[in-house]
Amino acid sequence: MKKPDIFAGILGLLIAVYVIYSAYHFPEDKVLLLGPSFFPTCLAGGLGIFSLLLLAGALRGKSRPCTDPFNIKDPGVHRAIISLLAVILYCVLLNSLGFIITSAVYLFGLMYLLQRRDYLKMAAVSVAVTLLIYGIFNRLLDISLPAGFLG
């Protein structure tokens, strides 16, 4: 698990540097003595130190072997990445298309990714589950989900 540890270590260091840099520009607090920057700076220091430890361990080859290596050619990883990107698209479309349409389509896609191929049943289930949850929240709990152009 060398590469991911190196990556995570560098990412941790970057976050730490960013936090310390921006906290440096927070106003000082003469009355309260410890200003808004004190705590984040301490935390970022800690994050930095442990990210360095992780990085050093990885570079010295001491990382533990990953139980489940991230292989970009693995179809499972493809599926996860697709579902991940699709969720981002889902969020973007949620407001304009509304909850029912976006959710039903996404659920159908999710079932397809999960290797179901009985299209009729999949369509029925995605529409039914979406409508059920929409109904419960809208009618029973009085929480109005985005209706989109249908509303």
């Binding site: 906290a23 808004p36 994050l47």
Partner: peptide, 23 residues
């Protein structure tokens, strides 16, 4: 690392004492 990261996330928002917006 996860602990420090979590605490850093918790500092997002108005500072609890002085009200200064952070991150």
């Amino acid at each position: 690392i996860a602990g420090f990261f979590g605490m850093l996330i918790s500092t997002i928002g108005l500072d609890p004492m002085a009200g200064y917006p952070r991150f």
